[in-house]
């Protein structure tokens, strides 16, 4: 952890700020949220690393998708993701957002979340332990440092594609497109 490295702060305050002030929106999509209370309270205390839960997407820059994603929740996830200010990072938590997990044959669950919103990283497991969240956060730091955590840029560039996938899953969306630019081709 290079939080106390003053030189780095002067060199790239943007990156350092993003790294050490990750504000996660607490949004429980499924069972995974049960691992978050121990993470933010006395046992593991995520605030040590500047990670705190915030109440609204406008204030947050880290989106933890905790657990399986039903079609109904997907709508809210997309809405919340679009309301977050850039730069924003998303982490899929648990097996279900990755490939459906134990809900692989459910009619009402989204199998591959990254078809609908871009994901910076995954935490596999069912359930992952709280320590896994810290591993994910440290990994996210590395990605931010290397400039690889650019999923939000991808969303902007390929918005047409994402929007098409979203409409495929949800039917007609009742909110206007976020970006007018961004082609649909992969």
């Amino acid at each position: 952890m290079d939080r106390n490295d003053i030189k780095k702060w002067f060199k790239s305050p943007d990156k350092m700020g993003d790294k050490y002030s990750l504000w996660a929106i607490y949004f429980c999509t499924g069972c995974g949220i049960i691992e978050i209370p121990p993470v933010i309270t006395a046992r593991w205390d995520a605030e040590r690393f500047g990670v705190i839960p915030v109440a609204t997407p406008r204030q947050s820059n880290l989106f933890l998708i905790t657990g399986y994603v039903s079609v109904k929740t997907l709508r809210a996830i997309i809405r919340t993701y679009e309301q977050m200010p850039e730069p924003k990072y998303t982490v899929g938590f648990g097996s279900c957002p990755i490939n459906g997990g134990m809900y692989w044959d459910s009619y009402n669950t989204i199998k591959h979340l990254d078809k609908y919103i871009p994901i910076d990283g995954w935490i596999a497991g069912c359930m992952p332990r709280p320590e896994a969240i810290f591993v994910a956060v440290t990994h996210l730091w590395t990605l931010i440092d290397q400039g690889k955590a650019k999923a939000y840029v991808k969303y902007r560039e390929k918005y047409g594609l994402y929007r098409k996938n979203q409409e495929m899953a949800l039917g007609k969306l009742d909110w206007p497109p976020l970006y007018t630019t961004g082609g649909g081709n992969d």
Partner: peptide, 28 residues
Amino acid sequence: TARLHWRYGPPVIQPFLDLIKLFHQQGF
């Protein structure tokens, strides 16, 4: 507050670090 909750707590300069982040984040 963190110490009262038996947590370790953030560094004392954490609000300043948050400010640095917030000012380069997008605003609506």
